[in-house]
Write a protein that binds this DNA or RNA. Sequence first.
RNA 1: GGGCGCUUAGCUCAGUUGGUUAGAGUAUCUCCUUGACAUGGAGAGGGCCACAGGUUCGAGUCCUGUAGCGCCCACCA
Length: 901
Amino acid sequence: MHVELPSQYNPKETENKWYKFWQEHNLFSAKPNPTKKPFCIVIPPPNVTGILHMGHALNNTIQDILIRYHRMKGEESLWMPGTDHAGIATQNVVEKAIAKEGLKRQDLGREKFLERVWQWQKEYGSTIIHQLQKLGASCDWQRTRFTMDEDYSRSVIEAFVRLYEKGLIYQGNYIINWCPRCQTALSDEEAPHKEIQGNLYYLRYPLKQGQSLSGTVPAYIVVATTRPETMLGDTAVAVNPKDKRYKKYIGQTLILPLINREIKVIADAMVDMKFGTGAVKVTPAHDPNDYTLGKKHHLEFVNIMYADARLNENAGEYKDMDRFAARDIILKDLKEKGLLEKIEPHQLSAGHCYRCHTIIEPYLSKQWFVKMSPLSKPALEVVRKGKIKFYPKRWTKVYLNWMENIQDWCISRQIWWGHRLPVYYCKNCPNLQQAGIIVSRIKPDKCPSCGSTDIYQDEDVLDTWFSSWLWPFATFKNGEDLKYFYPTSSLVTAPEIIFFWVARMIMAGLEFMQDIPFKDVYIHGTVRDIEGKKMSKSLGNIIDPLEIIHEYGADALRFSLISITAQGQDVFLSKERFQQGRNFANKIWNASRFILMNLTQGLSPQGTVPAIDLCVFFKKEDLDIVNRWILSRFYTVLKETNKNLEAYKFNEAANTLYGFFWHEFCDWYLEMIKSDIKNQRNQVVMYKVLEKFLRLIHPFMPYISEEIWQRIYNQGQSPGGGVPGNSIMIQPWPHVQEQMIDKKKEDKLNLIFEIIASIRNIRQELEIPLQKEIGVIIASPNQENRKLIEEMSGQIKKIAKLSNLNINAKYSHVKSSVSGVIKDVHVTCLLSGIIDLEREKAKLDARIRELAAQISAKKKTLSNKAFLKKAPEEIVEKESDGLKELNGILKRIKEIKNELQ
RNA sequence: GGGCGCUUAGCUCAGUUGGUUAGAGUAUCUCCUUGACAUGGAGAGGGCCACAGGUUCGAGUCCUGUAGCGCCCACCA
């Protein structure tokens, strides 16, 4: 078989071809198979409004590696794909689109608007899926699910109803995070706090006239606030009961400026005496702490804002102003009245909408909540007991800490795109506490309480995460699949998703399935740019994975990303980084090209290389040292790769494979067998190692490994001629052949490498061109070494370009030569007339100094009695052997120096 | 205010359970187009492992503290 390959790997030509091939032959599909162990990953559903970014690329490459690895290991491997309806994000995108037509969603009405969303969904919803396919993701696409699918939606409703029936869902008036731009409530997780630079404003609230306070205290109280506009909603001022400064004011009445409302001074231990003035304005409808105070002290709740954060009729003359515009005017008015005492710069943290980054407003409204503490208890247990493990471990603590302090979850959203709450109201009995509320899987015909048919559904939809928390089981359409694949195996995601999704899936799994949703959670790092900034569109520091795929290929992208991603560490990326992956792909390509060009016909009777087991073809005793060495190295690397993959250390696996293939297989092995490449042992071993290596690299670099594989087995035919059973992606993962691992053989070859390196070094330093062959004498008193060198002499001569090589037991000086010493092996290069004596002497002197230092350090260690007593025997032995060796080398070097004259 | 991570070669980072000569990629310098590959080969230089203590025969690795950077969480108005 002589396969002609171009000298450069061209990813563009191969990628689409093989992806199509895999799909056409259904190689991604997985079904329950009782004879096989299941392995399952559910994809973190990418947001349909997004485009593929590096975070996705990393996330999905990791999953694909796991899936392809387990598939090859013979497990029934399912990667369940799907997308998320991303309620707020998608609605925002569609609202923007219709805004171009001058329309608001209200102009269209709910039904028409949702039609537009579905239309958008149809058009763009699968963009991200196509991009994942470019990356090589081997998801079972036929199973692709969408959180708004009919049966998925049924599961969502079912979950709501069951929790409601259990008393774990309730409706209530509370302060929630309100996004005035999206005009919806948000959960705590959706309103992350960010530091902002603001001010602390000190406002004077005068005492009601006619109230008398003994002494000379001022007739006002100064309160400090960061949001002065909320003063319009104040219904009290609170002080700490222990605060001597304010004792006299407690119970007194103040006049709230601008609005002229009478408010009381109340005492509560919640007030921090040290902050601000020690007196705090209380706005129960616009601050969570004040809300608590308001409830406790039976204060009035005055809501001063519309949903869009303009002030409402309770704001008097400030009605209709935006909250921030009103702030300036209110401050100006207070200043005019002499009621603004001072302004201090103040850092504060405020919640921001995670979708549009608007500062959220704590807002009193009627919402639906999930009572979380009953759900959290079992979710804490399974992680504490290690039934679910986090990789890296440290995230366990983050998870537990959040779970221990869990707050009730606000799940109602005032948007249209999403699962509408299965809550219905009877118009006839609205005043009865519960009677008018009907929670039902299907719309009821009549009110179960009064029989009225005048029933309407709640306008709100559910938080998107209320559907995604069911993902590990709601994605399965039938019970057989669910039974086989649930609990799933690994979950791969980013740290910011732990609370949103991972924690909630664990709770949902335990609640609805009575079992954990997955066993391992692998948390990978965040992808950042070279300056450590998070990659984001707004910063303009994006490296577009699709561009990298276009330029370097998907395999290059995958390999580079993985090789630099240490477990759980953030990834700092620059575009140049991807050249490494491209170069590696090219290296694999060319090594394969070389091997295929040199494989003899005999090995491939029908143009197909038979799958000969090495152990059958040759007894290991029949193999020469070079082949024994590369096989030992291969199986060692296989062992390490297995270990690293099982431990989620993908970078270490990738780098081990890289180093092995490039530096051991190509740089040494292929170079050494080149001169005798038609030798049958070499033929079989080089082919076998390549073939097995391709399998190992396949999870990381699926395209190039398949391309070469197919060229071997299908004579480079186009995919049409390919046999599906021949795809590399379903070949068995190699087994470790322990009997082939031989560390002593590896050491022996290392000695040869050092000898060659030392000759090369001498050549280079003396600028002896490669074309000029030189003579070398290698001397060693060790007979085994001499035998080894004798055995390897052909390769040494070839690689080091020697005219002849003498092997002696005894060292003897030769004029005009330069020597290198490796252990007890002396390498003498015969170089008449080109030796600079002074330079050589200087070099030897430097070496002598270095050796002397090492020797004295070793002597010191070995003369330390505590060391001899306490260190393990093998370490002591190693040290004294080392000392002996160093002394030998030093002696030799000194002799060489003397002989140099 | 808590918690976590990082600090190792010019740059980006590895370094598993402590073992004495600290690795890779990239960049730099020198040489080489030799029939797989210049997206390549060979060689070289480059490090007080942030700092200060401690444990130990032995510390990049374990402990304590300090500094800088970066994340996450938290109801100081």
